[in-house]
Amino acid sequence: MTFNRNADVSGNRATRRGRNAAIAGGGVAGVGGLIVLLLALFTGGDFSSLLGGGTGGQPAPGQETEIGQCETGADANENDDCRLAAASLAIDQYWEQTLEGYRAPQLVIVDGSTPTACGTASNATGPFYCPPEETVYIDPTFFGVLRQQFGAEAGPLAQLYVLAHEYGHHVQRITGIMDRYPNNGTGPTSNGVRTELQADCFAGAWVAAMAQQTDQNGVPFLQEPTEQQIRDALDAAAVVGDDHIQAQSGFVNPESWTHGSSEQRQRWFSTGFRDGVGACDTFAASGSSL
């Protein structure tokens, strides 16, 4: 995935908030720490206590600022923060064209940690969507962790898959899907898993259409994704599968799943990519076809 260098991305509403606070102890060591980070990546839960430390208590809100040096597609190609901020324009435009009455969420790039209505957003919680605030929180340092310590590519399109997944939860919020299908526990066919797989499907649908979104001058924000970039996004979906994460600890328990297996996550992303939003009704799928 590459932004067109002359695309105008200056209209994004993303902000940076928080303070530059690292997890106590100077970082994450060993497979156990990696499992915690991967658990946190898509769950939005705070697992910092499992790392032998915390962020030092409740952080101050911190100053909220605009994302600097984020004016063009060339900027987005060079910087993770700008890439996410710029992509929010394309994702919002897609949903405005797809969903009547769509309203954009706020995107906050987390710098260290910041309090939210859904708990602390930090490098110990990973990307998440906070429904009461209608806000997506994302800490780009996770991509570095996945690249450097876990072996995942976590390239540009994989990063945008993660972002589009969280925007998928916003769509579920504003369309009432979250209210119609409340959390009913864990397991491979639970509402929680179906919710996550639908967000993967929504992300796939956007990726298929991403090159159709244009700036105010009619310049496409993004170029068509390559096959390698699609594989990278699918790899990211596999890495955050419940079975893959649990296998790192030596025990896989499907009844505890909250997000779906690697195979499910890849398949529903591919379904959205191939067939569009209309094929993303995971709640209508039988257990055997989920």
Results as ranks from 00 to 15, higher is better:
Asn6Met: 05
Ala7Met: 11
Ala7Thr: 08
Ala7Ile: 11
Val9Ala: 00
Ser10Tyr: 00
Ser10Ile: 05
Ser10Lys: 02
Gly11Lys: 07
Gly11Val: 00
Gly11Pro: 01
Gly11Ile: 00
Asn12Gln: 15
Asn12Trp: 00
Arg13Gly: 00
Arg13Val: 04
Arg13Tyr: 01
Arg13Glu: 12
Thr15His: 08
Thr15Asp: 00
Arg16Cys: 04
Arg16Gly: 04
Arg16Lys: 15
Arg16Gln: 14
Arg17Gly: 03
Arg17Asn: 06
Arg17Met: 10
Gly18Ser: 10
Gly18Gln: 08
Gly18Val: 08
Arg19Met: 14
Arg19Trp: 01
Ala21Lys: 10
Ala21Asn: 13
Ala21Phe: 06
Ala21Met: 10
Ala22Cys: 12
Ala22Asn: 05
Ala22Asp: 09
Ile23Tyr: 02
Ile23Cys: 10
Ile23Met: 12
Ala24Trp: 01
Ala24Pro: 04
Ala24Ser: 14
Gly25Met: 09
Gly26Leu: 12
Gly27Val: 11
Gly27Arg: 04
Val28His: 03
Gly30Cys: 11
Gly30Met: 14
Gly30Asn: 10
Gly33Pro: 12
Gly33Ile: 07
Leu34Thr: 14
Ile35Thr: 15
Ile35Val: 15
Val36Ala: 09
Leu37Met: 14
Leu37Gly: 12
Leu38His: 09
Leu38Gln: 15
Leu38Ser: 13
Leu38Arg: 12
Leu38Asp: 15
Leu39Thr: 13
Leu41Glu: 10
Phe42Ile: 14
Gly44Ile: 09
Gly45Ala: 10
Gly45Tyr: 14
Gly45Lys: 15
Gly45His: 13
Gly45Met: 13
Asp46Pro: 11
Asp46Thr: 04
Asp46Cys: 10
Phe47Leu: 12
Phe47Trp: 13
Phe47Glu: 03
Ser48Glu: 09
Ser49Tyr: 06
Leu50Ile: 03
Leu51Ala: 03
Gly53Met: 11
Gly53Trp: 06
Gly53Asp: 09
Gly54Glu: 03
Thr55Ser: 09
Thr55Glu: 10
Gly56Leu: 11
Gly56Trp: 06
Gly56Val: 14
Gly56Ile: 12
Gly57Cys: 12
Gly57Glu: 02
Gly57Pro: 14
Gln58Asn: 12
Gln58Tyr: 11
Gln58His: 12
Pro59Asp: 03
Ala60Glu: 15
Ala60Trp: 02
Ala60Gly: 15
Ala60Cys: 04
Pro61Trp: 02
Pro61Ala: 08
Pro61Gly: 02
Pro61Glu: 06
Gly62Trp: 04
Glu64Val: 09
Glu64Pro: 07
Glu64Gly: 12
Thr65Phe: 01
Thr65Lys: 08
Thr65Pro: 05
Glu66Asp: 13
Ile67Leu: 01
Gln69His: 14
Gln69Ser: 10
Gln69Trp: 05
Cys70Phe: 04
Cys70Glu: 05
Glu71Gln: 08
Glu71Asp: 09
Thr72Pro: 15
Thr72Ser: 15
Gly73Trp: 01
Gly73Asp: 02
Gly73Asn: 02
Gly73Lys: 01
Ala74Gln: 07
Asp75Lys: 00
Asp75Cys: 01
Ala76Gln: 04
Ala76His: 03
Asn77Leu: 06
Asn77Phe: 01
Glu78Asn: 11
Glu78Cys: 06
Asn79Tyr: 00
Asn79Cys: 04
Asp80Leu: 14
Asp80Ile: 13
Asp80Thr: 13
Asp81Glu: 11
Asp81Phe: 00
Cys82Pro: 04
Arg83Phe: 01
